[in-house]
């Protein structure tokens, strides 16, 4: 299963309390976090999230004073076994010459599925590759 979903990214400074401020804003507006990854530098981090309601979450954070953006990314189900990521995502993309910019995992709790979020340099091509059997 491969689908396009909206990811919300947030710029936060690397200092105590900023993550809390971001999470509090989401809690207050009843926005649930499905997946989250942070990449960081000494000064700042980029928080990437899949939210229960991306548009509402992004607007909530914007109003709380955060720089945010929304991007289409691919979400793919991967079998929870050795070689799962390799065979279903990494290898097909590499063979097609598509570069992975970043990826991170999450569990779809209700369905009990392991999922991967992947950002590539060509979403259309990547989607086609991952959908083909």
């Amino acid at each position: 299963m491969v689908s396009r979903i909206k990811q919300v990214s947030v710029f936060i400074e690397n200092q105590p309390g900023r993550l809390v401020a971001m999470l509090e804003a989401l809690e207050k507006n009843q926005v649930d976090i499905r997946a989250l990854s942070i990449s960081d530098t000494a000064d700042f981090g980029i928080v990437r999230m899949i939210l229960s309601d991306g548009a509402k979450g992004a607007e909530t954070l914007r109003q709380a004073g955060f720089t945010t953006r929304q991007d289409w990314i691919l979400s793919a189900e991967i079998p929870d076994r050795p070689g799962g990521l390799l065979k279903t995502v990494a290898e097909p993309l590499a063979k097609a010459g598509i570069n992975v910019k970043y990826l991170y995992f999450y569990i779809e709790a209700a369905a009990g599925k392991s999922m991967v979020v992947v950002k590539t340099d060509d979403i259309d091509k990547a989607e086609k590759v991952l959908k083909s059997p």
Partner: peptide
């Protein structure tokens, strides 16, 4: 200050 116009989800672009 980082505005929405220059912010990216990709670390490479921020760098």
């Amino acid at each position: 200050e980082v505005s929405e116009q220059v912010f990216s989800d990709e670390m490479q672009k921020m760098e």
